[in-house]
């Protein structure tokens, strides 16, 4: 434990005092700030219409003010935080010759990678909590709404999911920093995978769905074909962590959202439910809807870290 704590403390110190952290934090807090400011201004202008909502506070995070909401922003650019914190974790130490020195001290070898991962997670947590708290304070001042206990719980769950989501990317970039000796290669590889999984998978899902289950537009459209097409599309796009995250958080942060599925895939009862009842879901129900998403997100994070752990433990120390 002594080794783990020492590595953790040193890495956290490095993160918090590095320029890249300061720049990133400034950028992300600025954008979040602006998006929620827009949302707040929008809300204040339309307070009459919103009077019926039961959770005005959460709208600070989920309403797209001008371009996108704070939640969407984290989904898009949150991964960058993880990537930037981890892409040179191991290969930099290898290149400058400090890795061998550290592991020849009386510590377990896994203390190095565990300490680095935990320090990254701590930095991410610090960043997200700070941003959410600032926006909340901002909302209190601008809109004058006080969050209820359920809203606080929802925000808390949102934070936990977001931390896992960004930690997944942290784990992935640490894995690349173990696999690739060159820092530039690992940075490029992680950014490439991020762009692929976040942006191209959703485009590709459409292509795959049309190839596997084409919907013939010339003839009469068969309902089964449309259904199958939508199913394939959903299946493919769910391989993207961003889609998983967006679905999970959208339902948590917006109690009015009752399903993650598209209208085509809804069952008759679901359709009836969303058409007839305009009440928000209770927190428990919201969680049940996205539990598979949350579990999948946590699982890929843990798998990703386990793989880096294994590769690191089995790798030769010499290069």
């Amino acid at each position: 434990m002594q080794g783990l704590y020492a590595v953790f403390r040193k890495e956290l110190q490095d993160h918090l005092s590095s320029y890249r952290f300061v720049i990133l934090f400034a950028l992300i807090s600025m954008v979040s700030f602006i998006t929620s400011y827009m949302a707040a201004v929008h809300m204040r202008e339309n307070l009459e219409a919103l009077a019926s909502t039961r959770f005005p506070f959460l709208m600070l995070f989920s309403t797209p003010g001008a371009v996108f909401s704070m939640v969407q922003f984290v989904a898009f650019f949150g991964p960058l935080i993880g990537l930037i914190l981890g892409f040179d974790a191991i290969n930099r130490e290898r290149a400058q010759g400090t890795l061998i020195k550290v592991i020849s001290q009386p510590i377990y070898r896994d203390a190095v990678i565990n300490g680095k991962f935990l320090a990254g997670v701590a930095t991410i947590t610090l960043m997200l909590v700070a941003i959410v708290l600032v926006i909340s304070g901002f909302g209190l001042a601008l809109v004058g709404v006080v969050p209820g206990i359920e809203e606080i719980w929802r925000l808390f769950i949102y934070l936990v999911i977001s931390i896992f989501y960004i930690s997944f990317w942290l784990g992935l970039s640490i894995l690349f920093s173990i696999l690739f000796r060159s820092i530039a290669t690992s940075a490029l590889a992680s950014v490439a995978l991020w762009i692929f999984l976040s942006f191209f998978v959703s485009l590709g899902a459409e292509v795959v769905a049309n190839a596997v289950a084409p919907v013939d537009r010339q003839d009469e459209v068969r309902p089964e074909a449309v259904l199958e097409n939508a199913q394939v599309k959903e299946m493919v796009s769910l391989t993207s962590p961003m889609v998983l995250y967006t679905d999970a958080t959208a339902t948590i942060i917006d109690p009015m959202r009752k399903t993650t599925r598209s209208i085509i895939l809804m069952g008759p009862m679901e359709e009836l439910l969303s058409a007839r009842f305009q009440n928000p879901l209770s927190l428990g129900q919201s969680i049940i809807i996205v539990l598979p998403h949350i579990m999948a997100l946590m699982a890929i994070t843990l798998i990703c870290f386990s793989v880096s752990y294994l590769v690191f433990m089995l790798q030769e120390v010499r290069t």
Partner: peptide, 12 residues
């Protein structure tokens, strides 16, 4: 105590 060849240090 092990002093590796070309021991490295944290630059900062």
């Amino acid at each position: 105590g092990y002093l590796p060849e070309n021991v490295g240090f944290y630059r900062e």
